[in-house]
């Protein structure tokens, strides 16, 4: 029994990290109608910036603050100088240009930090385990779950209770109408794109002490993020949350039952969802 509790908690932590990556991808798609194949690269940058800040200052908390912001700034810069030129092109070109961006980021990371992965130590404050009877669980993993839950709550408040959130939601419904009502839609696009990338960067920082940073994890995580977004429904906050937790739990539980089947099941369910219910579990038809 305790084994399953362990796997479920692991799954929750993994799922929350997936949520943070996928929700940005999902909002960007909802508002900008833009497929961002560079999203995994933002996750990658988050992990590496975390490594760099920890290596320079020895302070994980500082990296938790700084790294996502730098990632967001880079994404904002790329959006407002490069990607905004391709919004009126077919999806194929958007896929190509973001794939190109992802390649550039990945290769730059290798140039700076090398091909061999980097390890990031769990911060002192969060080292050790929690003991409950005969069940022990690492504190850091509990921290990841609760911290990302707080972020999820804040993000929900931002999207549901502020003017900015209202604009994003309205824009996802009908971009043209929002723009006609006098909103600078391109500024909204840039901010949203930056926000999505910041969240991916944050996920990268949180995941760094768990799995380290290696230059090829961007592509891998991008695949998972697409699965989450598709299962939950493109453009849906709730969908990203439920989809992220589902994929995290499935991955964690399956890996103790039948490890080779993990990815088959994840990608198989992605294909099934698109075929049967293309708008996902929580998307609108």
């Amino acid at each position: 029994m305790t084994l399953y509790l362990f796997q479920v908690l692991n799954g929750l932590g993994l799922g929350m990290i997936y949520f943070l990556i996928a929700v940005g991808l999902s909002i960007i798609f909802g508002l900008l109608n833009f497929v961002n194949f560079a999203h995994g690269a933002f996750f990658l940058l988050g992990s590496y910036f975390c490594y760099q800040v920890v290596a320079l200052t020895g302070n994980f908390w500082l990296s938790l603050l700084i790294a996502p912001v730098i990632v967001g700034a880079i994404a904002w810069f790329a959006e407002s100088n490069l990607l905004n030129r391709v919004y009126n092109l077919p999806h194929a070109f958007q896929i190509l240009i973001t794939l190109g961006m992802a390649l550039v980021i990945q290769e730059s990371a290798i140039m700076v930090w090398g091909t061999v992965g980097k390890n990031i130590a769990v911060p002192d404050l969060l080292q050790g385990i929690v003991q409950m009877g005969d069940f022990a669980y690492p504190i850091y993993r509990l921290f990841v779950i609760s911290f990302s839950a707080v972020i999820a709550l804040l993000l929900w408040l931002l999207l549901e209770r502020t003017r900015f959130g209202a604009l994003v939601r309205a824009g996802s419904e009908n971009t043209e109408m929002v723009s006609l009502l006098g909103v600078n839609i391109f500024k909204l696009f840039s901010i949203t794109f930056g926000l999505g990338a910041t969240l991916a960067g944050l996920a990268g920082v949180l995941a760094a002490p768990l799995r380290g940073a290696d230059p090829f994890m961007g592509a891998e995580i991008l695949g998972i993020a697409f699965v989450v977004v598709v299962i939950g429904g493109m453009g849906s906050f709730t969908g990203a949350l439920v989809g992220g937790l589902l994929v995290g739990l499935v991955q964690s539980i399956m890996s103790s039952l039948w490890p080779p089947g993990v990815h088959l099941m994840i990608y198989g369910s992605m294909a099934l969802v698109i075929l049967i219910r293309p708008y996902g579990l929580f998307g609108r038809a």
Binding site: H91, F226, P260, G261, H263, L264, Y267, G268, L275, P278
Partner: peptide, 23 residues
């Protein structure tokens, strides 16, 4: 499916075949 959902399906199949070959 068409458009981006078509692309996503081909991606899902590509991954499935890869992991099938791996397994």
């Amino acid at each position: 499916r068409r458009g981006i959902y078509f692309v996503m399906l081909t991606l899902a199949f590509a991954q499935m075949f890869y992991f099938m070959a791996y397994t």
